Computed example of a mutant assay.
Amino acid sequence: MTTPAAPLRRLGLTGSIGAGKSTVAALLRARGLTVLDADEQARHVTQEPETLRAIGNEFPGTVTGGVLDRAALAAAAFRDPQRTAALNAIVHPRVRARMAALEAQAAARGEPWVVQDVPLLFEGGLDEQMDAVLVVDAPLEERVARVMARSGLSREDVLARDARQLGAAEKRQRATVVIENAGPPDELGARVDAALHVLGIHPRSRQV
Rank of each mutant, 00 (worst) to 15 (best):
L52M: 04
A19P: 09
T46R: 13
G56L: 10
N57Y: 00
H44G: 01
G32C: 06
S16K: 00
P49N: 04
G32W: 08
A19F: 10
V45M: 09
N57G: 13
L13I: 02
A25R: 04
T51Q: 06
R43T: 10
L28C: 07
P49F: 03
E58P: 00
L36V: 03
H44N: 01
G15V: 09
G20R: 11
T14P: 14
T34M: 11
R53H: 13
R31T: 01
L28V: 05
E48L: 14
F59P: 08
A38C: 12
E48T: 13
T14A: 13
T51G: 13
T51I: 03
T14R: 07
G15L: 09
A54T: 04
I17W: 09
V24D: 03
Q41G: 01
G61N: 09
A54W: 02
A26H: 10
G32M: 06
L13H: 05
P49L: 04
I17H: 06
D37A: 06
A54E: 14
G61C: 12
P49E: 09
S16H: 08
T46I: 11
T46Q: 14
P49M: 04
L13G: 06
R29N: 00
L13N: 07
G32P: 11
L52G: 02
A38S: 15
R53Q: 14
G20E: 11
G18C: 07
I17M: 15
S16G: 15
D39F: 12
D39I: 10
T46N: 00
H44T: 12
I55E: 01
G56H: 08
R43C: 08
S16D: 13
N57V: 10
L33N: 02
A26R: 15
P49W: 07
P60N: 13
V24N: 08
A25T: 02
E40Q: 14
A19K: 03
G56E: 10
L36H: 05
G32N: 06
Q47N: 09
G20D: 12
A19N: 05
Q47Y: 00
H44D: 10
A19T: 12
R31P: 05
Q41A: 14
R31M: 12
R53M: 03
G61Q: 09
S16N: 15
I17N: 08
T51P: 01
H44V: 15
D39Q: 10
A38P: 01
S16M: 01
A42S: 14
F59R: 06
A25W: 02
D37F: 08
P60A: 13
A38N: 05
H44M: 04
Q41R: 15
G20M: 10
S16C: 12
E50V: 06
T46A: 03
A25M: 03
R53N: 03
T23N: 00
N57A: 15
L36G: 04
V45Q: 07
E50A: 15
L27Q: 11
A26G: 06
T62I: 04
H44R: 15
L36Q: 07
R53D: 14
Q47G: 09
K21Y: 11
V35M: 06
T23F: 01
R29V: 13
R53K: 09
K21M: 07
I17T: 11
A54Q: 14
G56Q: 10
T62L: 02
L27S: 01
A25K: 03
S16L: 05
A19C: 14
R29D: 00
L28A: 07
Q41Y: 13
E50I: 00
D37Y: 06
S16R: 02
L52S: 04
S16V: 05
R43V: 11
